[in-house]
Amino acid sequence: MPAPRNRFKARLSEGDPQIGLWMGLANAYTAEICAGAGFDWLVVDGEHAPNDLQSMIGQLQALAAFPVSPVVRAPVGETWILKQLLDIGAQSLLVPMVESAAQARALVEAVRYPPRGKRGVGAALARASAFNRIGDYLTTADGEMCLIVQIESVAGLAALKEIAGVEGVDAVFIGPSDLAADMGYLGRPGAPAVKQAVRTAMATLHDLSCPAGLLTADQAFARECLEEGARFVAIGTDVTLFSGAISQLRRQFAGGGDAVKQAPSSGY
């Protein structure tokens, strides 16, 4: 029996646009709520959310019951943590702060087994191999691995073509927030210069036939990027949706406005 099919990677190859959501609440219960909303992919964030391996495992287990593709963002592109994320069952990895082709090649090696890479062979102990019940895991895992490198700096953009051309890089994700800061627009990812840099990167990746993605809460810009050829776009985060809805409810009540309409309750 081979490794599970990576639907996210397959759809990237097919060219289907995939719409996603960022998850930073670090909780399996809220992940299950997000999974039922109909998104194509969901990010389990290990860089800026308070996640550890145990909380990530819980979220992956919750998502497994739904037709949604999990993407796990590593806190950093170090071999030791990538190995652990793969062993807990991540098949699509997003690695932040990639700025050179050499760094991208090192990441490719880190997520693949010898002789193609340097991933440690310990899957018999891991959730990834269904705890050694997937007999062909070691020989089939590489083919279902999806490595997404995140470019979010001026240096990364300068090396974009070289990074995208590294064999084994499956997709490139542009991070507007850190890119904005590096360009001198801290806290302003919607600045015209930043948006133009993202558009240019999307067009370049499209010309290179490299799947491109990004995160933006600006729905008009998200649609524009999809028109430019982006293959996977996250259009919000669970944290901001939750905090925004709670704040709006309180403001509405304080202002005497109509109550927020809610779906019928099935009980408490």
Rank of each mutant, 00 (worst) to 15 (best):
D45E: 10
A171N: 00
T139Y: 02
R133S: 14
I134M: 15
T139I: 10
A123S: 12
G46S: 04
A234N: 01
G175C: 03
E167I: 00
P192W: 05
Y137C: 05
A164I: 01
G255W: 01
E144A: 12
L138R: 09
Q196N: 14
R188L: 13
R5I: 11
E144L: 05
V154T: 06
D136G: 00
A90K: 08
R5G: 00
A106R: 10
Q150F: 03
S69P: 01
G267P: 11
A245P: 03
Y113R: 07
G213E: 05
L60V: 06
Q18W: 07
R112H: 15
D40K: 09
P67C: 14
G175Q: 01
S100R: 03
M145S: 02
A101K: 03
F8L: 08
R251T: 14
D178N: 13
L21W: 10
G36F: 07
E78S: 14
F242N: 04
A222R: 01
P2A: 07
D170G: 03
V172R: 00
V260M: 15
P17M: 09
A74V: 10
K195M: 11
N132H: 12
G187Y: 08
A124V: 14
L21Q: 11
C146Y: 02
V98T: 09
R188K: 14
I81R: 05
Q61R: 13
P189Q: 09
F232L: 08
D87V: 07
R119S: 03
L215R: 00
A158F: 00
P96D: 00
C210P: 02
V198H: 02
G122N: 09
G77P: 07
I235E: 06
L85K: 05
R133Y: 10
A217H: 15
A128T: 06
A171T: 05
G267W: 09
H48Y: 12
E99Q: 10
A62G: 09
V98D: 05
N51I: 03
R251A: 15
G135F: 10
